[in-house]
Design a protein around this nucleic acid. Structure first.
Lengths: 221, 221
DNA sequence: ATCGCTTGTTGCAGGGATGTTACAAGGCCC
DNA sequence: GGGCCTTGTAACATCCCTGCAACAAGCGAT
């Protein structure tokens, strides 16, 4: 899951970014509105964590222009003010959720998760296909009832495939959503992670390759 | 938008229902869990507003059973408790959002809106003729509901034919648009790809040949 | 029916795409 | 700061897509 944080309090921004990375998300940070908009143009983020009170371009403006532009980014607004009126105003602006500072980190994570969850693949709190289940909340993966240890990247890739619910996902798309800016498009990391994932998941194979197109979770019938 | 409210405090339930109807939504109300489940079975709701503390069948149970049943309903949980832990637990249960009582009515509406907006988001435009569908976004092709794996070239050719929507397409035109400069006009590649395409699509034949003219997708009636 | 042209099918080889493994660098936790 | 784990790089092995070529089959006209 690819997240952009736009927040001028650098310390807060970095702390949140670090925490989210530990959760396995691919996180980029922008410390002001202008830079934020540049990032938004350059990359396909799933979730935008947006400070409402920014110097320069305000959070409200960014929010409005995204909403009117039909962007698929889900927006979570952070703000110092906690009044209900404020909340509603924020939601009316096109934001998808709203969180008043100070907030507990765990709540932020839960909210981001809820925002990113997609409709089709959702089977309760867990994602499952065939005999593979993945629980985003606890970071646990099971195959045929047996627990499987995955690293953050492996987990993120599997989660993305499951969220795509059987659609084909190209390595470019994976790079876009599971890795952050620093990823090298030509490195073939995806191939490597995919290989390790398949080994850990074991046979029978759940991840199919369509040569020249991408990967997908088996959703045969 | 179709909404179901399951809430045992009748006054609250009715007030909310009234307000939502004013917003143009189609609203049903159930005052207990059993009745709520009946409604859920009988109708296809977009959003479920669910009280967590219900007499009889609890909100949690409803939530869980919906989630495990793969229902597409978006769930917003209402509750007296506002603690963060509760919220996280609620979201983990498969709910999509969470609102603690007391809440401002306008906020509830805004939340439901946000949920519904997420719902509409996806579903790319598909191309379809007869019982063949092609989704350009996910690179997927189905014939009579069954998924069919195509290579890049095969996919591109089929897509071009479908875009022509029943009109005749010559081999020259295909070479021109599906292949690049390096293609040899005399090689007969089109014939080859066409053959493999037809084999994968299987009978009854969807691609017709007009001798001396070109190919077209069956556009039967 | 036969001829000539167009189209369909199949085997094969080259090359690009993908899978695998070993290794190095960097982060994280103690 | 040390040790472990994770992540990415590089090199190599393997797969399979693609286009070619040769041949078979279809079609229309005489």
């Amino acid at each position: 899951m690819r997240v952009l944080i736009v927040e001028d309090e650098m310390e807060l921004a970095d702390t949140v970014a670090l925490g989210l990375r530990r959760e396995g998300m691919a996180v980029d940070v922008a410390y002001d509105g202008v830079s934020g908009e540049e990032h938004l143009e350059a990359n396909a983020y799933d979730v935008l964590v947006l400070d409402r009170d920014l110097p320069g371009v305000s959070g409200d403006e960014i929010c409005k222009s995204l909403a009117s532009g039909g962007s698929p980014v889900r927006i979570l607004i952070l703000t110092a003010s906690t009044g209900i009126e404020e909340k509603v105003a924020g939601l009316g602006l096109g934001a998808d959720d709203y969180l008043g500072k100070p907030f507990a980190f765990i709540e932020l994570v839960a909210r981001i998760r809820a925002l990113a969850r997609r409709l089709e693949a959702r089977v309760g709190p867990k994602l499952m296909v065939d005999d593979v289940t993945l629980d985003p909340a606890t970071h646990q993966v099971h195959r045929a009832g047996r627990p499987i240890d995955l690293t953050r990247k492996e987990f993120a890739v599997l989660e993305y495939l499951l969220l795509a619910s059987g659609s084909v996902v190209s390595s470019e798309e994976l790079l876009e959503h599971v890795w952050d800016d620093s990823a090298d498009p030509f490195s073939g990391v995806v191939r490597v992670v995919m290989s390790r994932l398949r080994q850990k998941l074991g046979p029978p194979s759940v991840i199919q390759t369509l040569s020249g197109v991408g990967y997908r979770i088996a959703d045969d019938r």
